[in-house]
């Protein structure tokens, strides 16, 4: 098959040549179009979300601050101190020290409980592997993202902080929104 140079020609849409009488018309036309475009934005209104006052709702599967859970009926902690979350954590930000439950001091439903459970939020990358690794659904990712603080040591969240409800709830998007 013979080479057809026509096929290789790329069609380029060039603008009109600059200058001439047409240019004056184009300049005015395009200027008016630009003015209309910007005025359209005024008519449209603003899109600003004034952040500290109003918060953008997050999606239900948004991975924010972790939560530790208790059984709702007995009030016992779900965490049994198995350290699987710490093992799964890619940034090594979870520290678990386990201790034995005794009949007088029953903290969790299993044989052992987490005496120390700390998450270093300065290192956490919010990947959610801890949630996946947990065999008892004791840790889940919450929806809160306002975690800034003034010092690194304040970013180490203890078990009590993770068990408690966050002081402010992040607005959540409804399903399909």
């Amino acid at each position: 098959m013979a080479w057809d140079p026509e096929k290789d020609v790329v069609k380029v849409d060039r603008g009109p040549e600059p200058g001439g009488v047409g240019a004056i018309y184009r300049v005015f036309g395009e200027t008016l179009r630009g003015l209309r475009t910007t005025f359209g934005r005024v008519a449209e209104g603003t899109y600003t979300v004034e952040y500290p006052e109003e918060k953008t709702p997050v999606y239900p599967r948004f991975r924010g601050r972790h939560k530790l859970h208790r059984f709702e009926d007995t009030g016992l902690e779900k965490c049994v101190g198995c350290s699987l979350c710490a093992a799964a954590c890619p940034s090594k930000c979870i520290r678990v020290v386990a201790a034995e439950n005794t009949p007088e001091h029953q903290v969790s439903a299993g044989e052992r409980y987490a005496e120390v459970y700390e998450i270093n939020m300065a290192r956490c990358i919010f990947c959610g592997y801890c949630e996946v690794a947990c065999p008892f659904d004791a840790i889940t990712m919450g929806n809160d993202y306002e975690l800034a603080d003034y010092s690194r040591s304040d970013l180490i969240f203890t078990k009590e902080m993770l068990l408690a409800d966050p002081p402010e709830h992040t607005p959540l998007r409804r399903e399909g929104e």
């Binding site: 910007t38 005025f39 934005r41 005024v42 209104g45 603003t46 899109y47 600003t48 004034e50």
Partner: peptide
């Protein structure tokens, strides 16, 4: 303020 509105913003407030 107007520049903000022209750019779909609020401007200083």
């Amino acid at each position: 303020k107007l520049l903000g509105r022209f750019q779909s913003r609020i401007g200083p407030n």
